[in-house]
Simulated scan of single mutants.
Amino acid sequence: MSAALTPYWLIFRAGVRRQSTYWLATIGGLVANLTFGFLKAAILFATVEAAGGNLQGYDLATMSGYVWLSQGLLGCINAHGQSEIGDRIKNGDIAIDFARPTSVFASFAASDLGGGAYSFLPRGLPAIIVGALTTGIALAHDVSGWALGLLAVALGMMLSFCGRYAVNILGLWLVETRGLQVFYMVVSTFLMGLFIPVGLFPAWLKTVAHATPFPAMFMTPIDLLSGRIDGWAGAAAVGVQLAWLALLVTVCLLLTRLGRRYLEVQGG
């Protein structure tokens, strides 16, 4: 590994170790995911059956895939608006981060991705396995579908980080960003398809959702891993993720650069 990437790899590993420390929280998260997974499954299964067994392309197997994959990905694709950088801006520690010989954006991204990657193993994967054993789930049909699906998960994690980073980096101007965090959480969780699949939205709302990066964060990995989209359609969906990622990374880097010029830290 090149010397330029080594610090970020070490930060990624530190993010894994930090997340692994809170094993009671991980167990609590898994229990919550399973509880809400069964509740969501009961409601959505009843809806599909009431529609005659097929609801806008969702049958019981694909709906089950949506339910358990969505619950399983919650640990690594965060829908809340909080980010560590927001707290460091508020207490002034961000000045130390700017003084380090590493990219502030890349450092926080590496730490966040490390924690998210760890969360998937003890929290996300068991939820998917329990769903498969209890209600059965539809999954990707071939190796290419799995490869695209796992790539989409990684891109979804990065998109999720960029969204939260952009909200919290505004603290360089606002200092207090809790209101923005709550607003972001409400909008993102709905438009990403956390409660119901985006495919079930009314046409106008579906258009609004796809005008944002939120479905690319969450629904794209689920659709690929559940086999709802594959082949060229799957590749195109990953292409959309990459386009959103390029845009969001650019925005995050620009906000960081402009905010660094504006930053003023008092006290000592």
Rank of each mutant, 00 (worst) to 15 (best):
A61V: 11
A61W: 09
A61I: 09
A61P: 06
T62I: 12
T62Q: 09
M63V: 10
G65R: 02
G65W: 04
G65M: 02
Y66E: 03
V67S: 01
W68M: 01
W68K: 05
L69F: 09
L69M: 10
S70R: 09
S70F: 05
Q71F: 04
G72N: 02
G72P: 01
L74W: 10
L74C: 13
G75S: 09
G75H: 01
C76K: 01
C76G: 01
N78M: 11
A79R: 08
H80G: 12
H80M: 14
H80W: 15
H80L: 14
G81D: 07
G81A: 08
Q82Y: 15
S83W: 13
E84I: 15
I85K: 09
I85P: 07
G86A: 07
D87Q: 14
R88T: 14
I89K: 03
I89T: 03
N91L: 14
D93F: 13
I94Y: 11
A95W: 14
A95S: 15
I96A: 11
I96W: 12
D97I: 12
F98L: 11
A99I: 06
A99N: 05
R100Q: 13
R100A: 11
R100T: 13
P101C: 02
P101K: 02
T102M: 13
S103F: 04
V104T: 15
F105Q: 11
A106F: 11
A109I: 02
A110Q: 01
A110V: 05
A110H: 01
S111P: 10
L113V: 06
L113G: 00
G114P: 00
G114D: 00
G115N: 00
G116T: 00
G116F: 00
G116H: 00
A117C: 06
A117P: 03
A117I: 07
A117S: 09
Y118D: 05
S119Y: 11
S119H: 09
S119F: 10
F120Q: 02
F120M: 08
L121F: 11
G124C: 07
G124Q: 05
L125Y: 04
P126D: 10
A127Q: 04
I128Q: 00
I128M: 03
I128T: 01
I129T: 11
V130W: 06
G131V: 03
A132P: 10
A132K: 07
L133I: 13
L133K: 13
T134P: 03
T134W: 07
T135S: 08
I137V: 04
L139T: 10
L139Y: 11
A140G: 12
